[in-house]
Amino acid sequence: RLLEKEEDQESFNERQEQFNMVLAQTLDEVMKELKSTKAQLAASEERNRIMEEKIELLSDPNSDISQLEKKLDEQNERAEARDRLLIESYKQIQEQNKRILEQKPESKRKKRFGLF
């Protein structure tokens, strides 16, 4: 019986060692995965911090970017106003040219009839 118990104990010890080895390997893999996840989390937190800084800069009315955007908006408004004036001037010039062209044939007719 002692021999059987000793053999059972040896078998149990071997299974326990195998289990411990598998457990150690699994633990190593989990630790590696945990380190990788921590690194990814740190990188993600850094990206979030940078994005928050950018959002603060954009929302700050005194920021350079905000001032540049305002200047660009003002320049666009001035350009649109200038374009409207140019288009209006162009239309007026066209109307004047049209009136001049309409008057020219009448004056030519009068000259022709005046010569005969």
Score class of each variant (00 low, 15 high):
F19W: 04
N20E: 07
N20Q: 12
M21E: 15
V22S: 14
A24S: 14
Q25M: 09
Q25S: 14
L27A: 13
L27T: 15
D28C: 07
D28L: 11
M31R: 12
M31H: 15
M31D: 14
K32I: 05
K32R: 07
L34V: 06
L34A: 13
L34M: 07
L34N: 10
K35L: 12
K35N: 09
T37H: 08
K38E: 06
K38M: 11
A39Y: 03
A39Q: 09
Q40Y: 05
Q40G: 09
L41Y: 01
A42D: 05
A42L: 00
A42R: 04
A42S: 11
A43I: 00
A43C: 06
A43D: 14
S44I: 02
S44Y: 05
E45C: 00
E46V: 01
E46F: 00
E46G: 07
E46C: 02
R47K: 12
N48L: 07
R49D: 02
R49G: 05
I50M: 08
I50W: 00
I50Y: 01
M51G: 10
M51E: 12
E52L: 06
E53L: 02
K54P: 02
I55K: 10
I55D: 09
E56T: 09
L57Y: 03
L57Q: 10
L57T: 07
L58W: 04
S59N: 14
D60S: 15
D60F: 08
D60A: 12
D60M: 02
P61W: 00
P61S: 09
N62K: 15
N62P: 00
S63M: 03
S63A: 09
S63D: 04
S63P: 01
S63Y: 03
S63V: 06
D64C: 08
I65M: 13
I65S: 07
I65Y: 12
